[in-house]
Amino acid sequence: MLYLLNGLQLVYVVFLSPLIIGIFIKLTERFESKKGPSIFQPYYDLYKLFHKQSVVPKTASAIFQIVPYVTFSMYLILTLVLPIITAFPLSFGPIVDFIGGGLIFGAIGVLKKIASLDSRSNYSHLGTSRASSIGALSEPIIILIFITFGVISHTNNPYVVNNIMQTSSQWYFSLVHWFVVFAFFMALLIETGKLPIESHSNNEFGMIDQAIEMEYSGSELAFMKWGGYIKQFLLMSIFLNDFLIPFWVPMKVGLGSVLIYGFIHMLKMLILVVVFAAIQSTVSKYKLFKNFEYVAVAFTFAFLAILVYFTTGGSI
């Protein structure tokens, strides 16, 4: 049964993540009163890229070519260890906790940066340095949030956190929790490259993560892009399942409930995507150096959560 659910979750994430991105792009365009591309556009893009010839810079070494496959498979591992459509651990669940997941995310980031440095392209280097300097400040936020959750639940297991949040209304309505939610939301905007931080145009001024995959083409680019979609999907799912709306996730093994929850999860994601699209079309991009102020505010919220915990003892 568990193996079946493993496969189900993998398929669910890998094949629905481009759809979420497609809906997001469509919605943003609709907010701007444009027609926008079809919501299946990311699938078409991937399809097209898989049929293209890939070009590798002359100066690049083997790392450059390996990294897209490695990172994609690491995303697949992450898919199996996080609570997406189940609130009970799947077969790989016990191997990592929150910190472990964070480390895998970090490892993926490092690999991507190394590969982009390997490509010897100026634009890639630019993206690497920007991503590193913002990442150096945004990583502590994520760590702080995990520590706060560790304090609340006495564990770092995302499944346990979800179960506690689902069952204990005291924690769900506590001030600590909402500070954490806010901080994670701000960090989510950084990590998924949404607007106040990064704009996805072809203008290199605003590029951060986009610039890293500048030199890829063909199926390597397809894997990089697809990996990016999965990353966004995973982070949004964690935000929903562990932070914002931890409800209705099935806590007992059962195929039917998981299938039903699969639809509910899409609805949750849709709500989040609408919020993202609304932000995307109302906020303007910060200047690159103002990003650090944004990161500082997010850090402040994460830290205040701990302070609130010590002030109130978690009683509210």
Partner: peptide, 17 residues
């Protein structure tokens, strides 16, 4: 600098505590 001042303001909250 603004980012610094935000973090310092947080620091003062901790100092107050």
């Amino acid at each position: 600098p603004t980012a610094m001042s935000i973090v310092l303001s947080l620091f003062f909250v901790v100092v107050g505590y």
